[in-house]
Design a protein around this nucleic acid. Structure first.
Length: 205
DNA sequence: TTCTCGATTGTCT
DNA sequence: GACAATCGAGAAA
């Protein structure tokens, strides 16, 4: 039930951001010769809207070695290092040369939970496992090494869980941590499932 | 070549 | 609530 490439290639990044809620984000790694599958249900996303959005790395059409991934046709991973420490995972969307991306900010663990706990170095299941953009990449073992990977491939993919999300379950708010983006900082381009504990905690200032 | 700062989190007070 | 960790992209010079 991998999402097809066509899912990613419409140019409405806001619609895709909402459609991703409730889908599964799956990673497959090889540990000691054995495949390890881990997955979580996406509960929180943020849209980064191409060249016009000051919060986007591709603002103004900035096209560099790092941002080149975002200019690919939708359906690949954009993973980058933030604060020199954290790996953040995005889904690239839109047609080729339209650098739209969706940041995944929170997942609810559903598969391979013991492996996710071990990667996060926590003992029991709680929002600390994957409620936050840099936490879920740890839990799923996603790093910048996966930048540019095809999301219909064998390492990382998105799957339809069969669970439908009613529009009334979706809430919108301004994005987190983008105060530098001036007038774009207040745009309600963050989407999350109401009342889900794996939505990342909002920090003060 | 040098400088600034970040799509965050964990720890300490 | 405050702050350190940590490094590379991007811009300026």
């Amino acid at each position: 039930m991998k999402l097809p490439t066509s899912f990613y290639q419409t140019d409405d990044v806001f619609a895709i951001s909402q459609a991703l809620l409730g889908k599964w984000l799956v990673s497959s790694t090889i540990v000691a010769g054995e495949p390890v599958l881990t997955a979580g249900m996406i509960v929180e996303t943020e849209a980064y809207a191409g060249t016009l959005d000051k919060a986007s790395h591709a603002f103004g059409g900035r096209r560099t070695q790092r941002t080149e991934t975002m200019f690919q046709a939708g359906g690949v991973a954009y993973v980058y290092l933030c604060y020199g420490i954290h790996h953040l995972f995005n889904v690239v969307t839109g047609p080729k040369d339209v650098p739209h991306a969706v940041l995944i900010r929170g997942i609810e663990p559903v598969l391979g939970i013991p492996h996710m706990l071990a990667r996060r170095r926590v003992l029991s299941l709680s929002p600390k496992v994957a409620a936050g953009p840099a936490l879920l990449t740890q839990a799923l073992a996603i790093t910048v090494l996966q930048d540019g990977l095809d999301l219909t491939g064998e390492q990382i993919w998105l799957a339809d869980s069969g669970k439908s999300i009613h529009p009334s379950q979706i809430a919108a708010s301004p994005r987190i941590g983008v105060a530098y983006a001036q007038e774009y900082a207040s745009c309600p381009w963050r989407f999350y499932l109401r009342h889900n504990p794996y939505v990342s905690a909002q920090r003060k200032s």
